[in-house]
Amino acid sequence: MSSSEERLAAPVRNGSFGWALLASELAVLFRRRRTIAMLLALALIPILIAVAVRLSSSEVSAGQGPPFLDRITQNGLFVGITALVVAIPLFLPLTIGVAAGDTIAGEAGLGTLRYLLVAPAGRVRLLLVKFAGAAAFCLAATLTVAITGAVIGAILFPIGPVTLLSGDTISVVDSIGRSVLIALYVTVSLLGLSAIGLFISTLTSVPVGAMAATIVVAVTSQILDVLPQLEWLHPWLFSHYWLGFADILRQPILWDSFSDNALLQGGYMVVFGALAYGRFATKDILS
């Protein structure tokens, strides 16, 4: 495998905190054909939405279809937001599941894990680097949807001042700032799932199993989140605040869900990070 050779060649000195390892991990991740294919698939979501709305002759009335769909014809900048609403429940968790489930199990499945650990990188450092890689993928996936949406929206529809949920209007420049905030919010939202994927990935050497399990966890969490009988559980589900990014579209911005979400995702990261450490540090690496 050229990827592992490359990483083994990367000098990992004590005290360098594994920046070189991280750089090579990111390079391998984003050069992988699978990663590029997933990002392209995500980019298709806003393109499909925009083209469908552009070609359709029937007027979309307010309240129909995904949220914000009716705003697209008036303002192309809403394409990215609509695409994010569409992508959050399934497509984003799907790709994150693949990226995070592959982290450790993928190396184990290819038989490259033991070589990675031969280098004095340490298992903790490898876990951190793998998690950072998964987090970088979250950011890349979210930005792909948001930026493609903004670009295709600008091409196919007029752009102008953006109407917020509160009815106030903000300038295009302000709206770009809010879009960046939304992308950050969605990225943070997905970190908890990444940590769960990392933990599951340490349990097995079959990457497909880890990916599928991570995606199942994401879907299960969302199903539990809509059952009214489990209302006490809802604030604890990592998917509970996934659509809370709408609070950034209020005037003034409502930061409550942003901070609640960050706290919750932080909790998931710490708990599943500790579990992944317990498992990975005590594991016999045979492959």
């Binding site: 909790g267 710490v270 500790a274 450490y277 317990g278 540090a281 005590t282």
Partner: peptide, 16 residues
């Protein structure tokens, strides 16, 4: 040593 390495996985949820 195995026991020590699983310690964070127990302590962290307890602290939370």
């Amino acid at each position: 040593r195995v026991w020590v390495r699983w310690l964070p996985a127990v302590v962290v949820p307890a602290v939370i």
